[in-house]
Each structure stands twice: as structure tokens, then as C-alpha cells.
Amino acid sequence: MALLEIENLSVEFPTQGGIMRAVDDVSLKLDEGEVLGVVGESGSGKSVTMLALMGLIPFPGRVKAKKLSFNGRDLLSMSDRERRKLTGKDVAMIFQEPTTSLNPCFTIGFQLTETLRLHEGMDRKAARRRAIELLEQVGIPSAESRLSAYPHQLSGGMNQRVMIAMAIACNPKLLIADEPTTALDVTIQAQILDLLMTLQKERNMALVMITHNMGVVAETAQRVMVMYAGQIMEERSATDLFASPQHPYTAALLSALPERSEGGRLATIPGVVPGLYDRPRGCLFSPRCAYATEHSRNVRPDLRDWAGGKVRCHYPLGDPNRDAAMKADHPLGTEAAS
């Protein structure tokens, strides 16, 4: 049985201009101890998907799903109270901005022991002892004296370590790391990634690593989910995905990696992620896709099983009949890409 099962998850935000579909029909399975990378440009719905799983979609957002189960328990039918017993204990999450993610009015020690006392029922003393242990585990020097520090007295990297300590405090089965290194210095980024991977292995904890950095995915993930405009575009094992991407969007993201692009320049994908008003009728990537056809403009492709994973494209890159199929559907490629 999978640790996490999400079927047909959608998240909508009513806005003044209409209903904004931030997550569109996302399905996902995750096993114990598995590391999943979630990639995609800004606004592709990576964070919102995971916030929905945590039950953290802010008002007035709406969450719909056919199934949302964790560790064999149905999150949809659970009371809020029951669900809060899971969040922060069995599923934990860390965020992009470590410094603003910690409460400026409370000490590190308070914020850390709070979780322990709530979920583990520890008394003040036991929680304090455990907090020191946790800070040591995440590599914070002179842990005991840090307990009385406030977040603004620590660097961003240190605060992210504190966030990690808080997240792993109750031995979660799943940790969601939402761009945990984006806000940090490059040297610190590597340290934090190392720390996360070490903890993941030691505890055999499932890890969802959200990032828009393909390099980070390559270093960490076993499986990768590529999101675009709220939809899953491609999903497969990391090795396969890097060796032979099947979706044109994945291919474009990969060619944006510095070491893959030609002439040392960072390639970027022309165009922007569709917003509320310019959401295409057909394939969401069609306005930016070099291979778009009349058909992909008008008909939205389904997410289908393909080459050991899943892909949402009429003409996956590895399809032997690709050229013929595209020709039959009136290619627009050169025009769309220019």
C-alpha cells in the first residue's frame, strides 16, 4: 500500500476576475521512504498541491479530490481535529523562507518544544532535552544556548536548520520540502540539501522535494513529477526523465540547465505560464511549445501511461510515430515558438 495517495486533486481560488484553478486534476502516489521531486516554473501549482495535502489552503480556496489518503487513512472524511493530529506529526513541511517562517516573537526553544509537547505529550523538561538533541542532529552548534535565541538572531541557513528540526521532531513518515534552499546562499544550499538527504536516509522518511531547479532534482529525487499551470505534464523515474524526457516542457526545462545549454548561456523558455485569462483551450503548454499543432491547440491531452511513467502530450518525444502524427495535425511549431 502506498504511503500517500492523491487522486484527482483540484484547488481553486475564487478571485475578482473569476475562478483561478491553481491545481488541476493532480493524481499522485508515494511509497514509504521514496523521494519525489516536483518541478515546474513559478506559479505551476507545486506549493498549492502540497498545501492542500497539509490542509493549509487559505480561505477562500477550495479543495476537491476523489481520494486523499495517507498511511491508509482517508484525509477527506477526517474531522479537522483528527487531521491536525497527523499534520506536524506524520506529515511535516518546511518552506522557502526560513526566517519569516519562524515566529519572530518566540524563541527557537519555544517553537521547537511546542510541537513535541503537542504531539508527543512531553513535559517541559523532556521536550527541552529532545529539542537540544534535534538541534544537534540538524547540525546547529552550541545547541543548548540557541534555544533562547530568536529567529532574527540566526542566519537564514540556521533558521532553515531549525525549521528542519521542527519538522522531523515527531519522526514524520513524510516530509515536504518546499524550495528549502531557494532563499539561501549557494554554499549553504548544498549543506541544507545534504542534511535533508542524510535525514531522509537515516529515517527512511518519504520526501517531497519541491524546486524549480532541475539540478537539485537530479541530485536528490528517485522519481520526478513535472508540473505546468496546475497540471502534471510528466512523471517518471529520475534516471529515465533525465536520459530521455518525453514531454516537450520537460525537455525545455532540462535544456535550461546551465551544463546542458550550449555556449554556456542559460537557455530560457520563451513565453510565460498561462494565467487566469489566457488559459488555452487545448494543451496548456501549446502557446509556448515548439511542436504545437492545430490539434494540441484545440484538444487538451490526457495524462496517460507512457514509457514506464506518465505524460500529458499528444506527441511524446519518444514516440516513433511522432512525426507522422504531428504532420497529420497541422504543425504550428515555428510560428508558435517565434
Partner: peptide, 22 residues
């Protein structure tokens, strides 16, 4: 709307504690 309130909720704290304390 601050990030640390999202963190407090992500810890599984009760609504009362999130609003009344954090």
C-alpha cells in the same frame, strides 16, 4: 497572512492556539 502562521498551522496546532498565541 504571515509565513509563520502557516508554519504554526503546519505544526498541527489548534486554531485557538494559532490565533490566540502565535
Amino acid at each position: 497572512g504571515e509565513d509563520y502562521i502557516r508554519t504554526a498551522k503546519a505544526k498541527g496546532l489548534s486554531r485557538f492556539r494559532v490565533v490566540g498565541l502565535h
